[in-house]
């Protein structure tokens, strides 16, 4: 599965620019404590987090996750979107909660 499949199959909003690198999605990690995420998230995971500040872009880059997914309809600051665009990090949004999203992702990854 790729990011574009994830967007269409889970009806996600693309919050960053439209011409993104369509990376593979191989897993999922949920976490809001950044150091914790840095020790656990794997490359090509979808990272679900309620954090929306600038630092999530650095964490996504360092862990090489596929994309960031912000649940619960939380809005993402423009500075974060700008930094994500500058660093080639894809940020997605959804009104659903983390559990529903993870279950849906898990189903698609089977």
């Amino acid at each position: 599965m790729k990011i574009s499949d994830l967007i269409s199959q889970l009806d996600l909003q693309l919050l960053t620019k439209a011409d993104y690198e369509d990376r593979p999605v191989r897993g999922c990690y949920i976490g809001d404590l950044l150091s914790w995420v840095m020790s656990r998230a794997k490359a090509d995971d979808v990272w679900i987090t309620v954090q929306t500040n600038l630092n999530i872009v650095a964490v996504a880059t360092l862990t090489d996750v596929s994309c960031i997914l912000v649940p619960d309809g939380i809005s993402v600051e423009q500075v974060t979107v700008d930094k994500a665009n500058a660093n080639g990090v894809v940020v997605l949004g959804s009104p659903s909660d983390s559990y529903a999203l993870a279950v849906a992702i898990g189903g698609k990854l089977q």
Binding site: L33, L34, S35, W36, S39, Q51, N53, N55
Partner: peptide, 15 residues
């Protein structure tokens, strides 16, 4: 509030 403060940073470095 920004997601720091888990007390995991130095442990991450060590690992």
């Amino acid at each position: 509030e920004m997601g720091f403060g888990a007390g995991m940073g130095l442990a991450n470095i060590k690992n």
